[in-house]
């Protein structure tokens, strides 16, 4: 767990209980964890602190995860190399995921997320994905 100790992770999630769980699980694994409740708050943090990894919910008030993802992965973005793990409750057929898929398909320059996790997820699934993304 010593390798994790230096890494900072930003958790972006509007649902409080879920956010607390993610923070807790990642902290238990030894990461330095920060949390944001919605997209705008998250963007400010990223610009200030540049985390090593982001977990991102897609559907949130104010600025959605989809919109934030688009901004971060834009070709001109200085943050496009930060690994992002999408953690979402949206079904594959739902409007939310369709617009996320469209974002990826229409803008070829926008890279796929390092992982796409569908809720509910267990702590070890999360940690697996995080480790893979950070080691890649």
């Amino acid at each position: 767990m010593t390798d994790a100790a230096k890494k900072t992770i930003l958790v972006v999630e509007d649902e409080e209980d879920v956010r607390q769980f993610l923070v807790m699980a990642l902290e238990d694994a030894g990461y330095q964890v920060y949390a944001a409740e919605e997209g705008r708050q998250a963007l400010k943090f990223i610009q200030r602190e540049r985390p090593d990894l982001i977990t991102l919910d897609l559907i949130m008030p104010n600025k959605t995860g989809i919109s934030l993802y688009g901004d971060l992965r834009r070709s001109t973005s200085e943050f496009k190399d930060i690994p992002i793990i999408v953690i979402t409750g949206v079904d594959q057929r739902s409007k939310g995921i369709i617009s996320f898929r469209e974002l990826l398909e229409n803008k070829k320059s926008v890279a796929q997320p390092e992982a796409y996790l569908v809720k509910p997820i267990r702590a070890d699934e999360l940690l697996d994905a995080v480790r893979k993304a950070l080691n890649a």
Partner: peptide, 23 residues
Amino acid sequence: AGLAHSVKNVLQSLEGGMYALRT
């Protein structure tokens, strides 16, 4: 579709609660 989203969030929260309990 919305229900699924809602349910998943609830399940995720339950999973979180269970994790905290277990750990």
